[in-house]
Measured scan of single mutants.
Amino acid sequence: GPGLTDLFKTEKAAVKKMAKAIMADPSKADDVYQKWADKGYTLTQLSDFLKSKTRGKYDRVYNGYMTYR
C-alpha cells in the first residue's frame, strides 16, 4: 500500500487545494475548517501542510483555523 510519505504528499496536496479555495472564496472557510477539525488536524500539522516558498502566503488560512478551533 501507499507509504506514509505518499500519504503525507496526498494530504498536503488536498490541504493546499482547500486553502486556495478559501483564499479564492472566504465563504468556504468554515466548511473547510470543519473538515480539517473532523480529521483532527493540529495547527502544527496544518503549518507543515501549508509550507510555501512564498512567506506568509497561507497565513490567513492558518490564522482562520486557529480562531475556528
Rank of each mutant, 00 (worst) to 15 (best):
Y33P: 00
P2D: 12
P2C: 15
V32W: 02
L7E: 14
G1Q: 14
Y62M: 15
D48W: 15
Y65E: 01
T5R: 12
A37P: 00
S47A: 14
Y62A: 04
K57T: 06
Y68P: 01
V32H: 04
K16E: 08
D59P: 02
S27H: 06
M66W: 08
V61G: 00
D38T: 09
L50W: 02
Y41M: 09
Q45F: 04
Y62E: 07
K12L: 05
D38C: 12
A21G: 05
K12F: 03
K16H: 05
G40L: 03
E11S: 04
D48R: 15
A24I: 10
D30L: 11
R55D: 09
Q45S: 04
D38H: 08
G1W: 09
Y33H: 02
K51M: 11
L4N: 12
G1V: 12
L7C: 15
Q45V: 07
T42N: 05
F8V: 10
D31T: 10
G3C: 15
F8M: 13
E11H: 06
A14K: 13
D38Q: 12
D48G: 14
L43G: 08
K35G: 07
A24T: 08
A14V: 10
Y41H: 02
T42I: 03
T54I: 10
A13H: 08
D59C: 10
V15K: 01
Q34C: 08
R55E: 14
T10E: 12
K53M: 06
F8E: 11
S27K: 10
P2T: 12
P26D: 07
D31N: 06
K57C: 04
S47I: 09
R55Q: 12
V32A: 06
L7T: 14
Q45R: 07
L43F: 06
A37D: 07
A19W: 02
R60D: 15
V15I: 06
I22R: 00
L43S: 07
Y65N: 00
M66L: 13
T44I: 10
R60Y: 14
L7D: 15
A14D: 07
A19Q: 01
K9R: 10
F8D: 10
D48Q: 13
L4E: 13
V32R: 01
Y62P: 01
S27L: 07
A29R: 04
A21N: 05
M18Q: 14
T42A: 03
A29K: 04
A24K: 11
L43Y: 05
T5K: 15
A13G: 06
Y68W: 15
A19C: 03
V15A: 05
V32P: 01
M18D: 15
N63R: 12
R69W: 09
Q34R: 14
T44D: 14
Y33E: 00
G3S: 13
V32N: 03
A21I: 13
I22G: 01
L4C: 15
D6Y: 03
T67E: 15
S47N: 09
V61T: 01
Q45A: 07
Y58A: 01
W36A: 00
M66F: 07
M18S: 06
S47T: 10
K39M: 14
D38V: 08
Y62I: 15
A37R: 08
S47K: 14
K51F: 08
Y41N: 00
K20V: 07
Y68L: 02
M18H: 05
A13Q: 09
D31Y: 12
M23S: 03
T10P: 08
R55S: 11
K16A: 04
F49T: 02
A37E: 07
G1M: 12
R60G: 12
G64D: 07
Q45L: 07
A21C: 11
A14I: 12
I22Y: 01
Y65L: 00
G56K: 05
K20Q: 11
V32L: 04
L4G: 11
D30C: 15
S47Y: 13
Q45T: 06
K35W: 08
Y68H: 09
D38F: 07
D48T: 13
P26Q: 06
A21D: 09
P2V: 10
W36E: 00
G40P: 06
P26K: 05
L4I: 13
P26V: 05
L50S: 00
Q34M: 09
M66S: 08
L50M: 03
K35F: 13
L46W: 01
Y41V: 06
R55Y: 10
D31C: 15
D25H: 05
Y41K: 01
K57V: 07
Y58S: 01
K16C: 06
A29T: 04
L46I: 11
S27E: 08
P2Q: 13
F49P: 01
G56T: 07
G40A: 04
M23G: 02
Y33M: 01
S47V: 09
Y65T: 00
A19I: 03
L4H: 12
G40M: 04
Y65C: 01
G1P: 10
P26W: 13
F8I: 09
T54Y: 08
F8T: 10
R55T: 14
P2G: 13
K53E: 11
A14H: 10
T54S: 14
Y68E: 01
T10S: 11
K57F: 10
S52I: 09
K51Y: 08
M66C: 12
G1R: 08
G1L: 11
A24Q: 12
A13P: 02
K28H: 08
D6H: 07
S47P: 01
A19V: 04
D38M: 09
K35I: 15
N63Q: 09
D48P: 02
W36H: 00
Y41G: 00
T44A: 15
K51Q: 11
N63C: 15
V61A: 04
S47Q: 12
M18N: 05
K20S: 09
L7Y: 14
T44N: 11
G64P: 00
T54N: 11
T54M: 07
G1F: 08
M66H: 10
V32I: 14
S27M: 07
S52L: 05
T44P: 10
V32M: 07
S52V: 08
T44H: 13
G3Q: 15
L46G: 00
M66Y: 07
T67Q: 15
K53S: 11
M66D: 09
G56W: 05
E11L: 05
S27P: 03
F49M: 08
T54R: 09
D59L: 10
Y41D: 01
M23R: 03
K17V: 08
Y68G: 02
V61Q: 02
T42Y: 02
Y58E: 01
V15R: 00
W36Q: 00
A29F: 02
K39A: 13
R60A: 15
R55N: 12
R60V: 15
Q45G: 03
L43C: 10
L46E: 00
M66E: 14
T54E: 13
A14F: 09
T5D: 14
D59R: 10
R60H: 15
D25M: 04
A13C: 12
E11D: 05
P26A: 06
M18L: 07
K12S: 14
K20H: 10
A24S: 11
A13T: 08
F8W: 14
K51L: 08
T67N: 14
D31G: 09
Y62W: 08
M23I: 11
D59H: 08
L43K: 03
Y68K: 02
S27C: 13
W36F: 03
Q34A: 12
A14T: 09
G1Y: 10
S52Y: 04
D30Q: 11
A24W: 05
Q45E: 07
Y65S: 00
E11G: 03
S27D: 08
T67I: 15
L46H: 00
R60L: 10
L46Q: 00
Y68M: 03
D59Y: 08
T42L: 03
F49Q: 01
K57L: 09
M66P: 02
V15T: 03
D31A: 13
K39N: 08
K9I: 05
P2H: 12
S52W: 06
K57W: 06
D38N: 09
P26R: 04
T67G: 08
D38S: 11
R55F: 07
M23A: 03
A24F: 09
M66K: 13
T44W: 09
K20R: 12
V15D: 00
D6I: 07
Q34W: 05
K17G: 07
T5G: 14
Q34D: 04
S47R: 14
K20T: 06
K12Q: 15
K20M: 09
G3W: 04
K17F: 08
A13Y: 07
Q34G: 11
D38G: 06
Y65V: 00
K28I: 14
I22D: 00
A13V: 07
D31L: 10
T10Q: 14
A37L: 14
D30S: 09
A21Q: 11
Y58C: 02
K51P: 04
G40S: 04
G40I: 01
T5A: 11
S52R: 04
L46Y: 01
A29W: 02
F49K: 01
L46R: 00
A37S: 10
M23C: 05
G64S: 03
R69C: 15
A13L: 08
K39T: 07
Q45K: 07
I22K: 01
A37I: 12
D31P: 05
L4W: 10
A21E: 14
Y62K: 12
D6K: 09
Q45W: 03
D30P: 11
M66G: 05
S27N: 07
K51R: 11
V32T: 07
L7F: 12
K12Y: 04
S27G: 06
K53Y: 06
M23W: 03
D25V: 03
G40T: 02
G56R: 06
Q45P: 01
T54F: 08
T44G: 11
Y68V: 02
D30I: 11
A19D: 00
T42C: 04
A24Y: 08
D30H: 15
F8S: 10
F49W: 12
K9S: 06
K35P: 00
K20F: 06
F49G: 01
A37M: 15
A24N: 14
R55M: 11
G56L: 05
D6R: 06
K35H: 10
T44S: 13
